[in-house]
């Protein structure tokens, strides 16, 4: 039987450390278990559940967030690595009720069906949106290649990101 089905840790030693980090502009100082992942910290401690647990193994991208501006699978980031870091999740994109252009684009182009992958795709597309470049469709695809959509809404996801980039250039 594969290890995922059995326990990976039994020790109950005190593994907690107080860690400071910033999420969506807000500073947090939390006592966290060193063995927790950033995804668990977001979901269980901060109740920010936009990032999803599709695999917990770094294989699907549903948990994508930004760590100091870089796209990461938050399920693969251990607590120790978030000390003093600046984290951005999908919940931090909209500003006072105004949707981020990427969010708007995903709505207008029907970029999500069940929506479970949507926060991950939006966060994965974020640096592309911020960059100065004008990416080709192939480059858009490449930057989203680590995210799975089992509804296979890929066509509309590509359309959404391309549309967001277009709104940006036209602004």
């Amino acid at each position: 039987m594969d290890s995922h089905l059995t326990s990976d840790r039994v020790d109950m030693d005190d593994n907690e450390t107080t860690t400071k980090f910033i999420v969506n502009g807000r500073e947090h100082s939390l006592k966290i278990d060193n063995r927790d992942t950033l995804l668990d910290i977001l979901r269980d401690h901060l109740r920010l559940t936009g990032a999803k647990k599709g695999c917990d193994l770094g294989e699907c991208g549903a948990c994508t967030v930004l760590l100091d501006g870089k796209v990461v699978n938050s399920c693969q980031i251990l607590a120790a690595r978030i000390k003093d870091k600046d984290i951005r999740t999908v919940e931090g994109l909209s500003q006072n009720e105004t949707l981020h252009p990427l969010q708007l684009a995903f709505i207008e182009n029907d970029g999500g069906q069940c929506g479970y992958c949507t926060p991950g795709f939006i966060m994965a597309a974020y640096p592309l949106f911020e960059s100065e470049e004008e990416p080709s469709t192939e480059e858009i695809k490449l930057s989203l290649a680590g995210n799975l959509c089992r509804c296979n809404a890929y066509g509309s996801i590509i359309d959404s990101v391309a549309y967001a980039l277009e709104i940006k250039t036209n602004e």
Binding site: T49, G50, L99, E108, G112, G115
Partner: peptide
């Protein structure tokens, strides 16, 4: 017409609640 999917806003905001999100 291509009326916009009614539940998409919550999904792009990250506020749509799935079972595992509930505590």
């Amino acid at each position: 017409t291509s009326y916009i999917r009614t539940d998409l806003e919550g999904k792009v905001l990250g506020t749509a609640e799935y079972t595992a999100d509930i505590a």
